[in-house]
Design a binder for these strands. Structure first.
Length: 219
DNA sequence: CACCAGGCAAGTA
DNA sequence: TACTTGCATGGT
């Protein structure tokens, strides 16, 4: 994956867009809701997270002030269906403490630049690279590429990865070879997840994948 | 029943 | 630096 990388990545995007159409990520009505969802969905099926967010919304708790007022144990009880509830309650609390430095305002947070925000988010306990990039890209509209397990698996299955390859390697790969556009990055990652869910599961191997045998051997 | 899901931190070598 | 392990629910 060297000189022709840009071309390959453009082709991949085009094929996924043709097969699935625009995904319109992230599902969430507010930037704060998106950030919460990013933490809750760590290694967890989105349907479980959606249930939790719905519950918080109905209880009027989907705002920083209300969540900060809850004891950590009480928060854990409320997010139980999302799994890892004790860990995630602590992680949500640490994110809320971080957001307090910005007057609980996602808008104020979005006003900072990417080079400042990303390292700051990564220092928050419970926010790793994927969660940080998800919050940056989908809640704050910052041009950073989100890499996840599907990204590794799809590229690896198609023989496009010179492993070993770290999260940062793969993020840089996309960002070095694609235009730095928020809308493109948002749609690209969403399409990789869609493709991964339907056709690139750990087992069994892909069937009826819309990419077919792409990339062809002579490429 | 086994396996998976839009990770991360902490411990070990 | 590069593994390994704990964390936990709900769907297939």
């Amino acid at each position: 994956m060297a000189a022709r990388t840009g071309k390959l990545l453009q082709e991949l995007f085009r094929k996924m867009l043709d097969a699935f159409g625009a995904q319109g990520w992230w599902p969430g009505e507010t930037p704060f809701e998106v950030a919460l969802g990013a933490i809750l969905t760590q290694n967890t099926n989105w349907s479980n997270v959606a249930r939790v967010i719905q519950g918080l919304k109905e209880a009027g708790l989907l705002n920083p002030g209300a969540l900060k007022a809850l004891a950590e144990g009480e928060l854990a009880r409320l997010i139980r269906p999302a799994g890892y509830f004790n860990v995630k309650a602590r992680r949500l609390k640490s994110f809320l403490a971080f957001l307090e430095e910005f007057q609980d305002s996602m808008e104020l947070l979005a006003a900072a630049d990417l080079e400042t925000l990303r390292p700051a988010l990564l220092k928050v306990k419970g926010i790793g690279p994927e969660t940080a990039d998800s919050i940056l890209l989908y809640a704050l509209d910052q041009p950073t590429f989100v890499v996840d397990a599907y990204t590794f698996r799809i590229l690896s299955r198609h023989g496009l990865l010179a492993e070993p390859c770290t999260y940062e390697d793969l993020r840089q790969l996309f960002m070095d070879h694609l235009p730095s556009e928020v809308g493109l990055y948002q749609e690209y990652h969403a399409l990789l997840v869609r493709l991964g869910k339907e056709f690139c599961r750990p087992q069994p191997r892909c069937s009826a994948c819309p990419l077919e045998d792409w990339p062809s051997p002579q490429d």
